[in-house]
Amino acid sequence: MTADVWLPIPPKDVEGLPDGLTYRFWDGGETFPADPADCSFYVVPYMKPSGVGVRPLARMTSVQVVQTLSAGIDHVEPGLGHLPPGVRLCNARGVHEASTAELTLTLILASLRGIADFVRAQDRGEWLSGFRPALADKNVLIVGYGSIGEAIEDRLTPFELARVARVARSGRTTARGPVQPLTDLPALLPDADVVILSTPLTETTRGLVDAEFLARMKDGALLVNVARGPVVDSKALLTELESGRITAALDVTDPEPLPSGHPLWQAPGLLISPHVGGPTSAFLPRAKRLLVDQLHRFVNQEPLRNVILTTGAKGA
């Protein structure tokens, strides 16, 4: 097989790439490394502004695989209509679970224990003592129970929780217990002390956390969003935060990046991190392992991992 592969990581930095392929380095720059029409396997640049990763897709007439380095695929969906039929779109399942789950626990603990307040008090030289909520004995609801949701529960397990409820698009049974369908959310929300959003952004989940969703959350509950910003209605969340009824921690926002002067920056009871769930020291080793494995499968004509959809297929 002779084919161009576009990588957003310099090929010399990735050990174990299979022979027989021509590797091109492109990390979203203005100039393409070669003719996009010759690309067979395209790895989308990671953490680039909206529109960068889809720019070459219309010219990739020979592409067979589009591989993201993110768990979500919403940033490439606008360009899928330009692709020929039969192109497999794969996500980065297995790359971000550890980092995103770590950040989720960080946001929960920092919010409950008031770490942001302590940091501000330290800047003032003030000893800010007081009583704070613990994670122990809390009811936690995970909305979006894919591989990241599972990794989050892995890390919640030692914290002596009262209960973990799990919700996904459709119900199923796992070794840890039932996963309930999205239709059960209204009944589950009033009991949850912490609601974690780790769902992909789809037409079903866009605006899922609206005024009605938030109104069903119990007084004093914490909302944590490590999914995508548009899963949450920012205006509805702001209303609840300003009332002081609930608190929140957001790694993602709508809009994103959150512009200076946006009212969310000053909202009471809100902790914001700038979409840093994935980009940590854990990213590159896992991303490289995924790419090496996928490219060996591609060369050997073996089934690829993490195929989300195939263009031109029914329902794609």
Rank of each mutant, 00 (worst) to 15 (best):
G261N: 14
F283P: 05
L237W: 01
R286S: 12
R286I: 03
A287R: 06
I308V: 15
V307M: 15
Q301V: 10
V307D: 15
D293C: 10
L295N: 05
D254R: 06
P285D: 14
G244N: 07
P268K: 02
K288V: 14
F298H: 02
E242S: 03
R289H: 11
A313L: 00
P303D: 04
E242N: 12
G278N: 01
K235R: 13
S281M: 08
P268W: 10
K235Y: 09
L271F: 10
E256Y: 03
T247P: 08
G261R: 14
S243E: 01
L237V: 03
T280D: 01
E240W: 06
R305A: 11
R245I: 05
A249Y: 10
Q266E: 15
R286E: 15
H275N: 06
T280A: 00
L295S: 02
A267G: 03
G244H: 02
P259L: 12
E242G: 00
V232T: 12
I246G: 08
S234P: 10
P263E: 03
V292L: 12
V299G: 13
V292D: 11
H296N: 10
T280V: 00
N300T: 11
I308F: 04
I272M: 08
R245F: 14
R245V: 07
P268R: 11
T253A: 03
P255L: 08
T310W: 06
R289P: 09
E242A: 07
G312A: 08
P263Q: 00
P259Y: 03
L284M: 13
T280N: 01
L258I: 02
S260T: 15
D293Y: 03
V292I: 11
Q294A: 07
I308N: 07
G278T: 05
H275S: 10
R245P: 09
H296F: 06
E240G: 03
R297D: 00
P285M: 10
E302D: 09
A249V: 12
L295K: 08
R305F: 13
T280I: 04
A287C: 02
P274R: 11
W265K: 10
L271C: 06
T247V: 10
V232G: 07
A236C: 01
L291R: 05
G261T: 04
L295Q: 07
R289E: 14
H296D: 14
A248K: 08
G244R: 05
V232S: 04
F283R: 07
L271S: 00
A248H: 06
V299R: 12
A287Y: 13
D293R: 13
Q294T: 00
P268I: 02
L238G: 00
V252S: 03
Q301N: 15
K288F: 13
G269A: 05
R297F: 03
V276K: 12
R305V: 12
A248F: 06
L238E: 04
E240Y: 05
T253K: 07
W265L: 12
A287I: 05
L284E: 10
R297C: 08
L270D: 12
H275F: 06
F283Q: 10
F298Q: 09
A287D: 03
E302K: 11
L309E: 04
D233C: 11
V232Y: 00
T247E: 15
F283C: 11
L258H: 04
R286K: 13
L238N: 02
L304Y: 13
K288W: 13
F283N: 10
G261L: 14
